[in-house]
């Protein structure tokens, strides 16, 4: 009896404490949102249709946006988001686009500064009436500048592989099989040789017209 009473009292007290703690020490922001925001590129480019990455993360947390919403994030972001939210995604919807960066055709640039004003990462330099240019290291290829350019002088170009960024490809089964394919080629060559030899033998056995002619010539 004493045990039951003491345990119930203890339980009630601790429950009350937890209840109070939950009210006073509540976390204001949904931690999921913050986590999702960290997974997004964070360049606030707005290509997802939301004002920025924070708003996109909110929509994702609420479940009103798809994990495939972020074009510059690419496949990696989609996979990370899907893993965090425990949802599946349609692989067909994610096209693996090569990273691109903007390039300004300077002969067509009129110096309107619209791209500069719209660049979320301060990746374009220039002055009114003077041509602009892209700082390659500060561009992440969101394409906002392309949308606003009145002379269509912005082009998104795929990032070039250089000696510093190149790396070995994965040894694919095909590469493994190269030796096998070479063996196959050799086998085919052998077969062809055998076939040629067989044909020659056949020719020798039944002399063709030409051979007969030569023989005939030799006889004359």
């Amino acid at each position: 009896m004493t045990a039951v009473v003491s345990l119930s009292i203890l339980g009630t007290l601790l429950g009350a404490l937890l209840g109070v703690a939950a009210r006073f020490l509540a976390v204001k922001v949904d931690p999921l949102e913050a986590e999702l925001e960290a997974l997004l590129p964070g360049a606030q480019c707005g290509q997802c249709g939301f004002a920025g990455c924070r708003q996109a993360a909110t929509a994702l947390a609420e479940g009103t946006a798809k994990v495939t919403l972020c074009p510059p994030g690419g496949r990696k972001t989609v996979v990370a988001l899907a893993e965090r939210l425990g949802v599946s995604f349609d692989t067909a919807e994610v096209e693996e686009t090569a990273p691109r960066i903007a390039f300004i055709h300077e002969d067509r640039c009129i110096g309107c500064t619209r791209c500069i004003q719209n660049c979320t990462t301060d990746g374009i330099v220039g002055a009114p009436g003077q041509m602009h240019t892209v700082i390659q290291d500060a561009c992440h290829g969101c394409g906002k500048c392309q949308e606003v350019c009145p002379t269509d002088c912005v082009e998104l170009r795929p990032v070039q592989v250089t000696l510093a960024t190149w790396h070995w490809h994965k040894p694919s089964p095909q590469v493994h099989a190269r030796a096998r394919s070479r063996a196959r080629v050799r086998a085919a060559a052998r077969a062809a040789r055998a076939a040629r030899a067989a044909r020659a033998d056949a020719r020798a056995a039944t002399p063709t017209a030409a051979a007969t002619k030569v023989e005939a010539g030799g006889a004359q």
């Binding site: 590129p41 964070g42 360049a43 606030q44 979320t120 990462t121 301060d122 990746g123 500060a138 992440h140």
Partner: peptide, 10 residues
Amino acid sequence: LMKRLAEGRT
């Protein structure tokens, strides 16, 4: 870097 630049601009 992109995040830092975007935050700086904002």
